[in-house]
C-alpha cells in the first residue's frame, strides 16, 4: 500500500474521506427499467433518423419533380444537381454517427482518445462545412436560378419580356435573390467557422494538460 492510501496519512486521506462519505441516493434501476429506457432511447434515435430521412425525402421529391417537369433544361439540370447534393449531405451525415449511436466505443477508447476524437470529429465537421454542406448546393442553385431567369425572360430573351408578364422575375430581383442566398451561405459558414475555432481551442487546452 502506498503512503497515499495508508490510513492516517493526512490531507489526502481527508479528501478521500470527504469523497467517500458523500450521501448517496442509492437508487438502483431494475433490469426492466433499464430495458424500458434503452428501448425508449433506441426509439428516439430511430425517430430522429426518420425525421432526417423524411426531410431529405421531401427535398428529393420536390426537386425530383422538377427534374422531369422543369420549364427548361436549366431548371431540370439545376434540380438534378440539388438532388445529388442532398444525397451527398445525407450520406455524409449518416457516415458520421454520434458516439451515442455507438455505445461500445465509450468503453473501448481511453478517455483522452475518446475526448480528443470527439472534439476533432466535430471540429472537422464544422471546419469543412463549405465542402460537404454548402458548396455541393452551389452548382444546383446557380443553374436553377439561371433557368428561372431564362424562363422569365430576364436572360437570353427566350420568353416574353418581363414587362408583359405579371408574375415574371426581373434581373434585379434575381440578383437580390442570389445575394440573399449568398448571404445565408456565408452566415452559415461563419457560424460554423466560429464553432470550429472554439473546438480547436478546447483541443489546444487538452494538449496542454
Amino acid at each position: 500500500m502506498s503512503d497515499e492510501r495508508r490510513p492516517g496519512t493526512g490531507p489526502n486521506l481527508e479528501l478521500r474521506e470527504l469523497w467517500h462519505s458523500q450521501q448517496l441516493e442509492g437508487k438502483e434501476l431494475s433490469m426492466e427499467a433499464i430495458h424500458g429506457r434503452v428501448s425508449t432511447l433506441e426509439r428516439k434515435i430511430k425517430i430522429r433518423n426518420g425525421i432526417e430521412y423524411a426531410g431529405a425525402l421531401v427535398v428529393l421529391l420536390s426537386f425530383g419533380y422538377q427534374i422531369f417537369e422543369g420549364e427548361n433544361v436549366y431548371v431540370k439540370v439545376g434540380a438534378l444537381l440539388i438532388t445529388l447534393a442532398t444525397l451527398l449531405v445525407v450520406y455524409f451525415l449518416r457516415t458520421r454517427g454520434s458516439a451515442a449511436d455507438m455505445p461500445e466505443e465509450l468503453g473501448r477508447a481511453a478517455s483522452l482518445d475518446f475526448y480528443r476524437a470527439s472534439l476533432e470529429r466535430q471540429r472537422d465537421l464544422h471546419q469543412s462545412v463549405w465542402y460537404w454542406y454548402l458548396l455541393p448546393f452551389v452548382p444546383g442553385v446557380a443553374v436553377s436560378l439561371f433557368g428561372f431567369a431564362v424562363r422569365d425572360g430576364a436572360i437570353l430573351n427566350q420568353a416574353a419580356p418581363i414587362a408583359e408578364r405579371g408574375d415574371a422575375t426581373d434581373a434585379a430581383s434575381i440578383l437580390m435573390f442570389v445575394g440573399f442566398i449568398a448571404a445565408v451561405f456565408f452566415f452559415v459558414a461563419a457560424l460554423n467557422k466560429r464553432r470550429a475555432r472554439k473546438l480547436q481551442a478546447e483541443l489546444d487546452a487538452l494538449e496542454e494538460q
Partner: peptide, 12 residues
Amino acid sequence: IHIALWRSFSGF
C-alpha cells in the same frame, strides 16, 4: 450512464 453502460456491454 447506466443506459450507456448496459448498451456498451454488447461490445465488451
